[in-house]
Nucleic acid binder design. Sequence first.
DNA 1: GATGAATGAGTTTTCATTCAT
DNA 2: TATGAATGAAAACTCATTCAT
Lengths: 217, 217, 217, 217
Amino acid sequence: MLPRERFQNLESQKKQKILDVAVDEFASHGFREASVNRMVQRLGIAKGSIFQYFGSKEGLFHLVFHHAVELVRHSLRRVKQDTAETDFFERIRQSLLAGIRFIDQHPRVYHIYLKMIFQEDFPLRAEFLKQVHLFSAEYLKPLVEAGVARGELRSDLNVEMAAFFLDAIMDRFLQAYAVSFLDAGAGLYQAQIEDITQKIDEFVRLIRDGMGGDNAA
Amino acid sequence: MLPRERFQNLESQKKQKILDVAVDEFASHGFREASVNRMVQRLGIAKGSIFQYFGSKEGLFHLVFHHAVELVRHSLRRVKQDTAETDFFERIRQSLLAGIRFIDQHPRVYHIYLKMIFQEDFPLRAEFLKQVHLFSAEYLKPLVEAGVARGELRSDLNVEMAAFFLDAIMDRFLQAYAVSFLDAGAGLYQAQIEDITQKIDEFVRLIRDGMGGDNAA
Amino acid sequence: MLPRERFQNLESQKKQKILDVAVDEFASHGFREASVNRMVQRLGIAKGSIFQYFGSKEGLFHLVFHHAVELVRHSLRRVKQDTAETDFFERIRQSLLAGIRFIDQHPRVYHIYLKMIFQEDFPLRAEFLKQVHLFSAEYLKPLVEAGVARGELRSDLNVEMAAFFLDAIMDRFLQAYAVSFLDAGAGLYQAQIEDITQKIDEFVRLIRDGMGGDNAA
Amino acid sequence: MLPRERFQNLESQKKQKILDVAVDEFASHGFREASVNRMVQRLGIAKGSIFQYFGSKEGLFHLVFHHAVELVRHSLRRVKQDTAETDFFERIRQSLLAGIRFIDQHPRVYHIYLKMIFQEDFPLRAEFLKQVHLFSAEYLKPLVEAGVARGELRSDLNVEMAAFFLDAIMDRFLQAYAVSFLDAGAGLYQAQIEDITQKIDEFVRLIRDGMGGDNAA
DNA sequence: GATGAATGAGTTTTCATTCAT
DNA sequence: TATGAATGAAAACTCATTCAT
């Protein structure tokens, strides 16, 4: 029996607990500094068990990674469906909101994402970067193209560049949110939601209209 | 005598070599995975010496960190001086170019910056984040305010937000540059410089004029 | 029910497969490094089953060992019968050929024999050494005695010593064969058989006539 | 500083003790089953020290191996010199005696030799087998050739085969000595020396005159 | 009778830090 | 002041064995 199967055969509650602890550990310490010792101690199970289930520390990370990818995919699919009929800038707004919601519901997963971006020694990093790139190529580019076609965006826009610009700005917006809000403690309170919503609106306006004034060069 | 002083008393060449090797090690492996063993081996000095000079691995990192901060400060001061008379968008352009140049000249330092952003267990991380924040507050905000004052930027601009927006977009631009170009190997060739310059121009235009078309909501 | 009985009650095919895999594992890795994990994986049965059948890893080795002893006994009995009427040196020749054939047909069993000779931590090692000793006492000594009686061997021969001498020389001949031929890959090709046959002939002549020349001391 | 140097810098007494314990451990358990844990426990030093000195368990074995090779080389050189003027069979006699003496003085080293012959997973095994082969090629073949030249050996002798024959028979003689005498306990008592000497004499006579009687086929 | 999840002591190896020389 | 030997806790991983289902 393959290691992965071993894990899948466990009872649901135990699987969930292991997944939770693993996500937390990798989010807190990255891959190499994550400690299987710590995990099994927190789980109250024998060290050998983890290796029965996953074969190696890396095998455990695979589980965590694919779980995370699945969550992100699900979230993106929903936004895409829900905003199919709306105009470009509303779609950007909704995407940012969805991002905020995701971070709020899965902060540890988002932490792992942040770690993987600039820590070279993560397993599956190549696949991860490909997935990230796909977001820009498969999600944002069509959005921009549709926006240009409907005349909601300037017709002389460099689509590639615009997609990168959006990717950059949105990603960084979420990063800033994650760092400034989540470090403080926990989830979204009503006041913060309003604050965030307002920020998103201003953000979208900057994207739409730029910063230039009358005397702009 | 305090550890730090011991280091300062060394001859200049030795100090430089220790600094170089340390920067390289922390850039390549982060803090915890950086190995004092490897460093002393490369330096050809005794392991004990490092602890005489710096007291601990963390003490060594302090040196590296403050060295990096100094480099960044220096670079920013120069751009500020050189562009004092130019208009807002040209200043952004020059800032981005300066960023590219910095990464090109100090790629290992930039690597450490990238690692520190999302790896919680770096020493001095709180101070680091404060410094990063200062960039936006002390460097970009005045820039935006001046731009608004001269009418180069819209007068209804939320200065705070605009500074964050700029910070985000510029940082991400440099990150993308660092990943796509430096991974490949080494420094800037002429062809790439032209490519980069052109990209910067388009970028600045997006910031100035936005993406909105005639039908924008 | 005793463990051993549990195993004997299995269907013949399964028993054979378990035996084969166990022989292979012990031949490849010795006793302590042999892995029950690997065996059950190759067999496609549950790990617990091995312990139901044999009680322990050592119990499993007992099966393998006695199986091997049986094979050797059977082979020796046949040679003895087939060469009952021939002269001493032909019997030695036939014994060596039978040895070669045995190694060729049961290379893994011979590997286990080689491992057991000088690895002290094999179970059953005392019994094994006794069996090996019996070969010399029960098989070779009568051979020598008969040879002396028929005048095919010198009458002043120290029988004990001659048996040991034969044992040594024959065993080492087979070891050399096993190492040089089996390492290369697999069974006996015609060319090799001729080569071996010729070597055996020369060998037997050395045993018969010695090395001494006219000036021998 | 290279690991090996680290060890050489230790004080002589400590080096000797480490070497002794290592030889004993590898002789008793082979390579893979030898336990660094056990060794440091017996030595009363920290586990890390072994890895400072040798880099790895394998590095430690290298020391042991090359130490053993040196001992054997030294012993062979002496026999060669001491018997330069004597006839062939006396040289064989002296070689066997030297072998007995070696086993008696370095029984653990001889144990390692025995283990390496048929345990495939020893480090340096290829080099070891080459060394063993050299014994036959560089030591025994010249002996046989000289014997033939002086007429002490039959002129029609196949030199290659004769060397192999001698190698086999001598090696096995020593093996038998090692197993039967050393397992019992310790060194050579006078009675045993006489016994051994007598056995060697008979052995040499078998080699010289063969076993054949008047009726030999 | 068969299963396979759970165990925990075992393995080698790394490494920051200390301190006597 | 510089050295480098010594330390010991920590790391990932293996594996024979047990036992509830």
